[in-house]
Amino acid sequence: MTKIWTMIRKEWAEVFKNKFVLFSVAFMPLLFTAIPLGVLYSMRGATAAEALGLSEVPAEMTALCGDLAGAECAQFMIVSQFLMLFLLMPVIIPVTIASYSIVGEKRTRTLEPLLAAPISTLELLAGKALGAAIPAVAVTWGAYIIFMVGTILITGSPALTTLLLKPLWLLAMVVVGPLLSVAAVSMAVMVSSRVNDPRVAEQVSALVMLPVLGLFMAQTAGFIQLNQGFVLWLALILAVIDAGLLALAIQLFQRETILTRWK
């Protein structure tokens, strides 16, 4: 554990000196928080149908709103859609950091002394992955808290606040978000160890966002509706995927191949 923490602190000391990385970590959460809050603010005082731009609110939507009615129901629907963005954040934010992690060591020629040190592949990769995932998750949680507080302040609706704090979203933020982040960085670290160019690593690693984007689209289009059971299953599946990806990353991290084939 000590060496993983040593690795994480080195990663942070290095990447957060890079202004571009700092910008990429801070910009998206700010944007993803400001947009829904702006939308909510603009909807104040409107009826549900007006807020949603519909002649009347569909019955399925009313059912999902539970005790909420009128504008509160519309606000809840809008907020629910935007909450998916908070699951995208822990996937998108760390990819830039993680995809540079191994290929960056190759470029600066620090990989050989690093591999010569008594650190296991698991410690090395876990340090790299967590070094990218922890800031992303922390920033996501921070943005989520700001969003919740902003929603309460803008809507002033205790019923809406209660619905937003229900286990579904807490589970999504506290469990699914970090699991998604670990999956993204494991993938990025794996790709980073197999390529020579950080741009290639970032491009390929970005593919990991596709399933989450698909989920977002499916929810927006009404094909799926997130509920507690679905999120629980998602968390379990992601935990298995994370373990598999980390094991695969360790398997694919061939010290000798990386050292001798990369010039």
């Binding site: 290095e14 020629r109 050989e112 010569a116």
Partner: peptide, 16 residues
């Protein structure tokens, strides 16, 4: 743990 190695290129973290 028992050996030290000076690699062909120094390889240091430039930003640290």
């Amino acid at each position: 743990r028992k050996v030290g190695i000076l690699t062909e290129t120094p390889g240091m973290y430039d930003q640290l």
